[in-house]
Design a protein around this nucleic acid. Structure first.
Ligand SMILES: [Mn+2]
Ligand SMILES: [Mn+2]
Ligand SMILES: [Zn+2]
Ligand SMILES: [Zn+2]
Lengths: 139, 139
DNA sequence: CCCTTATTGATAGTTTTTTTCAATAAGAAG
DNA sequence: CTTCTTATTGAAAAAAACTATCAATAAGGG
């Protein structure tokens, strides 16, 4: 039983075929996947899969911290599997390739600074970097 | 003629009633406004306004750097007027109140660090802080 | 004031996401 | 393994978000 299946069960959720397929696809992907894309890919193996299930599964996974929703250039949403803990992504604007990185001291310092200057108590942050991966540079 | 109208005209675009209304609403708002909300508010004064025009106007304003699209908690999009230059926002999760802040040295350092470690050439970034404004804390 | 054409709004269409509910199957219990 | 409970699924339909088309309108230059 894989780590995320363990976590699912621990939280009182069932390990089902659609959930296995969605997580499998996300874990294997280097790029963010949209609900639609996940649907089409997963349906190859699970003939009568419903798109609704994809949405529900992604919502569940996100609530458990297994995946993370990223905001693509055009305004659409994609999902990426995340390793345990808090991370952010750099996403290639050309090929979609994504790499995780931890929010380091720099970000913590920035947040502390903003809290001091605005009086806001900051509870969450959304940080995403967009650019070109090594492969796509110079093309 | 206000600054943004100046900028619009300078760029070869016309200053129209719908555009005036949308910008007026955005400038007066402390919180991000959705296309739908803008539509409903603006239609009070401009009876036969089309929702399409809101979308087109926001797209134009964004391309000119007059407004900025922010990602709300629930996944929907909202728009905020921005002052000239590059800025980010802290948004209150309770009342929606938003405050701009400049991405300081901390962020630049973080980006340089990630570029060095991942090999990506970072061209854009998305940074948004979510929390509670002074008023909403302790409620 | 007139002309050119950028802009608009009505209409229709597409894509994305949510709701509902009966059928199904996961996992606990025996 | 079989039975039971109920979380989960999928079909269908609806709602919400966004986009494309095109004739009518009006902004702004001359
Ligand atoms: Mn972080
Ligand atoms: Mn910035
Ligand atoms: Zn790339
Ligand atoms: Zn607040």
């Amino acid at each position: 039983m894989s780590a995320w299946e363990e976590l699912l069960a621990q939280a009182g959720h069932r390990v089902t075929e659609p959930r296995r397929l969605v997580m499998q696809l996300l874990l294997a992907s280097e790029t963010p996947l949209s609900p639609q894309t996940l649907f089409e890919s997963a349906r190859v193996q699970h003939h009568n899969l419903g798109l609704v299930t994809i949405y529900r599964t992604l919502e569940l996974f996100e609530s458990l911290g297994l995946v993370c929703r990223v905001h693509l250039k055009d305004g659409c949403h994609g999902y990426l599997a995340v390793s345990p803990g808090h991370h952010h992504f750099v996403i290639c604007e050309r090929c979609g390739g994504s790499v995780e990185f931890p929010g380091g001291d720099d970000l913590r310092a920035l947040i502390a600074d903003i809290e001091a200057r605005t009086g806001y108590r900051i509870e969450e942050h959304l940080l995403q970097l967009l650019g070109l991966c090594p492969n796509c540079q110079g093309k």
